[in-house]
């Protein structure tokens, strides 16, 4: 019975082919440092799931953002856990992604033929930092308000176009409901879209080229 269901599905979905190319393949022997890429992926997925759950109650307006988070923390069943995971997960993700980068650097894994994989990885790192920067404002507390004020001010010091960038980021001269709305949109739509597309490319390349090996003394 199970066998016939499987072969029916396999005939249509090509499950065996996927199993053979993705899972049942030989890779070089590696150490624990090589788990940080998949750990970053796992943390990214966790951020996605907890983020979606938070968006059920979170309201991205200056009048309600703070109170909606207070409600998530105090009024929603396990709201504190979901927010706690999202909050700490963000920091941990940056950490694992950065150490992953250092591992790749140390073993020279960015060299031929994995230059493009490195390229997508750097995009992902900055994607994560962008998520951190935009997500920091969303609780609309003192810390986030003033950090974003200073952060956007820094963008404003860029020669010639600085003032323009500042206005685009803030949606005006000062932080306001428009800024919060823009950061929210960046945080839940624009950055995730870029990140998901880049992660898919990154994973495709990792499977296509194989996990890099630990270089020996002569290489």
């Amino acid at each position: 019975m199970t066998q016939s269901i499987f072969s029916w599905l396999d005939e249509r979905l090509g499950l065996t082919a996927i199993y053979n190319t993705v899972l049942d393949r030989k890779v070089p022997k590696v150490n624990w440092w090589f788990t940080l890429g998949s750990a970053s992926l796992f943390l990214g997925l966790l951020q996605g799931i907890t983020g979606m759950l938070l968006s059920v109650y979170y309201v991205p307006t200056p009048d309600h953002a703070y109170d909606s988070i207070t409600f998530i923390m105090n009024g929603v069943q396990f709201g504190w856990l979901i927010r706690g995971l999202h909050h700490w997960g963000a920091s941990l993700l940056i950490l694992t992604a950065f150490i992953h980068l250092l591992r790749v650097f140390f073993y020279g894994a960015y060299k031929y033929p994995r230059e493009f994989t490195w390229f997508t990885g750097v995009i992902l790192l900055f994607g994560a930092l962008g998520m951190g920067f935009t997500g920091y404002l969303l609780p609309w507390n003192q810390r986030s308000y003033w950090a974003t004020t200073v952060g956007t001010e820094i963008a404003g010091t860029v020669p010639v176009v600085g003032d323009f960038i500042l206005r685009v980021l803030r949606g005006g001269t000062d932080l306001s409901a428009v800024t919060l709305s823009r950061f929210f949109s960046l945080h839940i739509w624009i950055f995730p879209a870029v990140i998901i597309a880049t992660v898919i490319t990154h994973l495709y390349l990792v499977i296509r080229l194989g996990i890099s090996n630990i270089p020996d003394k002569d290489s």
Binding site: P62, Y66, M73, W80, L81, R83, G84, L85, H87, W88, P139, W140, N141, Q142, R143, S144, Y145, D174, L175
Partner: peptide, 14 residues
């Protein structure tokens, strides 16, 4: 998340 949690901050105050 359980033992350190998220430190509450005062509301944004321009």
């Amino acid at each position: 998340a359980t033992f350190l949690g998220v430190t509450p901050q005062p509301k944004a105050d321009p």
